[in-house]
Design a protein around this nucleic acid. Sequence first.
DNA 1: TAAAAATACGAGCGATCGCTCGTAATTTCA
DNA 2: TGAAATTACGAGCGATCGCTCGTATTTTTA
Lengths: 221, 221
Amino acid sequence: MPDDTAKPERKRQARGEKRIEELLDAAAAVFAERGYKAAGTNEIARRAGASPGTLYQFFQNKDAIAEALMARYVARLRAAHGEAFDPAVAELPLPEMLDRTIDPVVAFDRANPGFYALMSDPHLSPELAGAKKPAQKLMFQRLDQILERRAPDLPAEQRTRTAEVAVHLFRGLLPLIMSATEDELPAIVTETKEVLFNYLSPRIDPDATPQRNTRTRGQGD
Amino acid sequence: MPDDTAKPERKRQARGEKRIEELLDAAAAVFAERGYKAAGTNEIARRAGASPGTLYQFFQNKDAIAEALMARYVARLRAAHGEAFDPAVAELPLPEMLDRTIDPVVAFDRANPGFYALMSDPHLSPELAGAKKPAQKLMFQRLDQILERRAPDLPAEQRTRTAEVAVHLFRGLLPLIMSATEDELPAIVTETKEVLFNYLSPRIDPDATPQRNTRTRGQGD
DNA sequence: TAAAAATACGAGCGATCGCTCGTAATTTCA
DNA sequence: TGAAATTACGAGCGATCGCTCGTATTTTTA
């Protein structure tokens, strides 16, 4: 027997897909400016050049807007992380590995302030909190895999904690990264890499050079 | 001539002071649960066992509630930091200094989830954002002073950046610290201290032992 | 080309929320 | 003890906001 709860299966036109992208773009901007709770659905529609009715033709409710936006971010993150967390980078020396992983993530977060706004909001509804988890797990699991390759002898529990703490350290510096101007950014990113180097180095390279505190080479030269 | 804009100078009874404390306690709880924007003033009043009218007899508007709450937190922080950032701790070895500074701050944050809720909200009104700054500067400046004592030769600019980054690293781990159970807490606090040790050590003790990654002694023995 | 489907509009409904105001009870003051 | 001041109440006002619905336009389908 056919499924009673099946979706009405409506065909989407090219117009509709485009509208959805415009609405998600507008939602990202408003979320970034006002935060999720204070963002108005009418303002989102207006910024997308649409009416409230049109908005609710594509999204069941306000939460669904943020969920769809999150799904779009996760898809884009997978592409960005496909480069940043390529298995080959696990074999690189730690400084190079940090360059290859952190730079793309910094670029992504700065290019998508709406993503940062949703991820850093601790008071979302349970459904939205669930929508955040794939993005959280993405970075954590990929880093965990790299650590497993680099330090196969490290107990899984310690490795997992190390990956989790490393992610949180990065997130702690994200406010500085997000609010920095273009010319302030290199110094902060360098500092971020030093922090993670100092934290990760003794845990995965037990007998490497103990520090690199005066390392000041910039990005991409 | 007398100031036209002077306040009406109303005398506050003991009842009133007590009510204010109750209202601030309720506000802290609701802010922590729902976040500032989603917290309702009627719910705050109800939880304090008061009516909306009573609430607005003591606070001009919703923002003023959060501002008064912040002021109360700052006063309590000054007391806690008076111990945590006593000038004497600047002379202690780095591990002991971290014990003396981090433990009280962790205890304060965990005992005051409303403080954490307001401080971590990036979408408050400009007035409320201004009310946050004293609390932000408190920790930063005291740490900056300690660093100045310990590393007098370090350029002020580098020292300031180091203090700022150290505070952000701590804040990055705060979500883990806040959500931990009592028995998970010691391990996370130890990890926090290791992170800050690894970060601060090469910057203020240029020729000390380079790492202490397997240090596992608990709190307060 | 005509019917069907998808997209678009925007006024406005219903609920929520910050806040008021008329009134009453309690405490302080003279 | 009487008057003034402070505290307390809670129904409800006005504004905001998520969302709907009747209708009109555009695109697809047959």
